[in-house]
C-alpha cells in the first residue's frame, strides 16, 4: 500500500533522527564526558611518555662530561643532514693527538624526530628529550650546539 509505506517511511525517518538527537542530547547534559584538555593551563601536570621524541639532546653528567666521541655515526645515520659534527684534535694525558668533538651542531628545523641517530650512537651520548614547544621567532635559534661549553669526554668512553 502506498499510503502505508509513505507513513512508515516518514515515521522511520523521524525515529532515526530522534535517535541521533538523543545521543547529542545525552552529551549536552553529561558534562563529565568532556575530554578537552586545557593545554597551556595544564602544563604543570602534563607528563609526556619517556619515549616521546621531542628533540635530540646530549647527556652531560655533573662534571660537565659527555659521552660523545665524535665518531659521526649519527651524522651518517641522519636522513636529513640534521646533525653536523665538527671535530678537533685534543692532546690527551699521554701526549697523543686524539680526535674529539668540538661542536655537535644540531639543526632542529630539519629534524624529523626519526630516532635513527639515537639508534646509531655506539656510546649512548645523545638521547631524545620530551620537550615539544619548539616555536621561536628567529629560525637561527633552532640551530643548536648540543655539547655544553668546556665539556669533556667522559673517562672510559671509547
Amino acid at each position: 500500500m502506498f499510503l502505508k509505506e509513505y507513513i512508515s517511511d516518514v515515521a522511520g525517518a523521524l525515529k532515526s533522527l530522534f535517535i541521533g538527537m538523543k545521543r547529542t542530547g545525552y552529551y549536552f547534559t553529561h558534562h563529565k564526558e568532556i575530554i578537552t584538555e586545557q593545554y597551556p593551563d595544564n602544563r604543570a601536570t602534563l607528563v609526556l611518555p619517556e619515549r616521546f621524541r621531542g628533540e635530540v639532546v646530549m647527556t652531560h653528567n655533573e662534571n660537565n662530561e659527555h659521552r660523545c666521541t665524535g665518531c659521526t655515526a649519527c651524522e651518517l645515520a641522519c636522513p636529513n643532514g640534521t646533525i653536523k659534527i665538527v671535530t678537533k684534535f685534543d692532546i690527551n694525558a699521554e701526549g697523543k693527538k686524539k680526535k674529539a668533538v668540538d661542536k655537535f651542531v644540531y639543526h632542529l628545523e630539519l629534524c624529523t624526530m626519526c630516532n635513527l641517530c639515537i639508534q646509531a650512537c655506539p656510546t649512548d651520548a645523545i638521547k631524545m628529550a620530551q620537550t615539544f614547544e619548539h616555536s621561536v621567532y628567529d629560525r637561527s635559534l633552532l640551530t643548536k650546539v648540543l655539547n655544553k661549553p668546556d665539556s669533556k669526554l667522559q673517562e672510559g668512553v671509547e
Binding site: 619515549r51 616521546f52 624526530m113 635513527l116 639508534q119
Partner: peptide, 24 residues
Amino acid sequence: MEETCGARLTMNYQVPGGVMADIH
C-alpha cells in the same frame, strides 16, 4: 602510539629486522 613508539603520527617504529623498541 606515543607511549610505545615515541610519536603520535609519524612513528618510524618499524625498522628492518623488527621494531625499534620493545612495547611499553
